[in-house]
Amino acid sequence: MVPRIGPCRGAARPRYHGAVPPLTSPKRRLLVASVTLLVCLAAAELGVRLAGLAAGTLPRAPYGGGDVEALLAWQQDFGARGEVFGGQTHDPLLGWVPAPGLRDFVEPGHPPRSTNSVGMRGQAEFALEPTEGLVRVATIGDSFTFGTHQKDERIWPARLSEASLSQGSRPFEVLNFGVPGYGTDQALLRLERDVLPYRPDVVVWGIFETNPSRSRRLFSYYAKPRFDLAGGELRLGHTPVPAPGELATAVWDVPLAASPCHLLRWLQISRVEVVGPGTAPLLELHRALLARAARACEEAGAKLLVVPIPTLRWAELPPSATELATHAMAAEGAFSSHDLRPIFEGTAKAGAGPPLYIPGRHFSAEGHWMVANTIAGRIDELGWL
């Protein structure tokens, strides 16, 4: 029998002289992979820092997460041309407002639209003093109020007067202060600065489901202001909003808590915030913004009607926490609200007629008429005429 040759139990392991032992151990492979990753990250970090130092912009920016993602997209699409975005102009307080004096302005994928001399949607001009015999209604909100994807005369603010007359009510004159992309914070600031000086009898605030979340952003379609809550008080920050020229070529340092690594900051990309039952800070901010708007309207002698606007998937998704909070505040008497969901549901059950939304976009022309008709009826029902 040939004796077995080789190391036996207890035998000393072979020594390697002048060579690296083979990386067969999982721990050794993990170590090498970790070191390689750290070297790559260090090289990328150095590149980010050098780029920032060359531009003289590190550190300087308050932006983080999804704000940076939006900023980079804006730089690519509009920054090189020095524009805010289609049909909008820079505003140091609000971030952006519709450019005044547009006549049949055409943005790719949109029908022609116009604005008057102060940036309201449509061509009609209005004096600060209301017209005698008419109910002056001012509308605020985002693109669903501004009327994106529809012509001037086919959007719900423009059809409110027609709707009121069809119901036998007093005629309206409607001033449309809606702005595409606004959060509830920007709508509040526009209400206080631009709307109330026109002495409206009624303010209709259309709040689309994503508007409250935009109030926590510093950059959405463009840079914007933001309110913070401190001791229950609203404090406005991040103003004046920088002009496009300052943002167009900047290399931004993105703050990330507990990490000095600029690369990790650049990689911090947050997704669309889900407004669920657990979002207490956002709900507190939402309530505070609505309460301030209600006080401003009351002091100006205007009635406030808040209209939550459901998403295109309204039939599949339940009301958001902020939508429920809006109706709860109205029930407490802070202001009045109008629930569009029963109207939508009635239309869906009837199973007749065209859809209320353009697929993937905003209200259809029929959707705008339905909204105008039901809002005019709600104003009459409240006895505000």
Rank of each mutant, 00 (worst) to 15 (best):
A187K: 13
P62V: 10
L46M: 10
D104L: 00
E132W: 01
E45S: 03
A315C: 07
I155Q: 11
Q123T: 14
L41W: 00
A350G: 06
Q186C: 02
P277R: 02
P108F: 11
P3Q: 08
V137E: 05
P200E: 00
P7D: 03
V272P: 15
T139Y: 05
A258K: 09
G231F: 03
L165G: 07
L188F: 02
P3F: 14
A294Y: 13
R4E: 09
W96F: 06
R170L: 07
R193T: 10
E107I: 13
D194E: 09
P3H: 06
L267D: 07
A352P: 00
L256V: 12
F105W: 02
L290F: 03
V39R: 12
A321T: 10
S337Q: 09
W384C: 03
I140W: 05
R193Q: 14
T374D: 09
L41D: 11
T57K: 15
H338S: 11
R190L: 08
W266R: 09
A302L: 12
G383P: 09
D77N: 14
A127H: 10
L305R: 12
S270Q: 12
G64N: 08
A321E: 06
R136D: 01
D185A: 02
A127L: 12
G18Q: 04
Y198A: 07
A334N: 04
E323Q: 15
T326H: 08
V135G: 06
E366W: 15
W156T: 06
A365R: 14
F177K: 03
G82L: 03
T145V: 15
H327I: 11
E332G: 07
A352T: 03
